[in-house]
Amino acid sequence: MTNENTQTLVLGDVEITRVVEARGPFAPARDLVPQSGAGLWKENEDWLAPDHWEPDTDRAVLVLQTWVLRGGGRTVLVDTGVGNGRERPGSPLFHRRQGDFMESLAAAGVRPEDVDVVVNTHLHADHVGWNTVDAGGEWVPAFPNARYLIPAADDAYFGPRGGYGGGAREIDRLVYEDSVAPVHRTGQAVLWEDTHRIDGRLTLEAAPGHTPGSSVLRLESGTDRAVFVGDLLHSPVQVLQPSCNSCFCTDAAQAADTRRRILGRAADRRELVIPAHFGGTGAFEVREEAGGFAIGGWASGI
Rank of each mutant, 00 (worst) to 15 (best):
L204T: 04
S246D: 13
D231W: 03
P212V: 09
L204S: 06
H234R: 06
I262V: 15
R218A: 09
H196V: 07
L204C: 07
E271P: 04
L204P: 03
V273P: 04
Q254L: 14
A226T: 01
L263G: 03
G264Y: 02
L217G: 02
I262L: 08
V237N: 09
D199C: 13
G222T: 06
V237L: 04
R261A: 14
C249P: 03
D257S: 15
D268R: 14
C247I: 11
A206R: 07
R265T: 13
Q254H: 06
A267N: 05
G200H: 05
G213F: 00
L204A: 07
S235W: 00
L217T: 02
H234K: 13
L202C: 02
P242C: 08
H210A: 09
V229E: 07
L204N: 07
R225W: 09
F248L: 15
G264P: 07
G209Q: 01
E220D: 13
G230I: 00
T250H: 11
S243G: 14
R259Q: 02
H234F: 11
I262K: 03
R269H: 14
T223P: 14
R265N: 10
E193H: 05
L219P: 07
C249H: 12
R259W: 04
R270G: 09
L263R: 02
D251L: 09
S243R: 11
S221N: 03
A255K: 05
R259V: 03
V216N: 10
H196F: 11
H196Q: 10
P242K: 01
R269C: 13
H196E: 11
S235M: 09
L232E: 04
G230V: 05
D251A: 13
L219H: 06
E220P: 06
G213S: 09
T223N: 14
D257F: 04
T250M: 10
H196R: 10
D231G: 06
P208T: 02
H196T: 08
Q254N: 08
G230C: 02
S243C: 06
A253D: 15
Q238N: 05
T203I: 09
D194I: 11
G213P: 00
H234G: 11
E220T: 14
L240V: 02
P208M: 07
I198V: 15
I198D: 10
I262N: 00
A256W: 02
R269D: 13
R201E: 11
G222Y: 03
P236L: 08
F228E: 10
A206D: 09
P208W: 07
R201K: 08
R201H: 08
T211F: 00
G209C: 03
C244G: 08
G264H: 01
S214Q: 11
D268Q: 12
R261F: 01
D199H: 12
P208L: 02
C247Q: 14
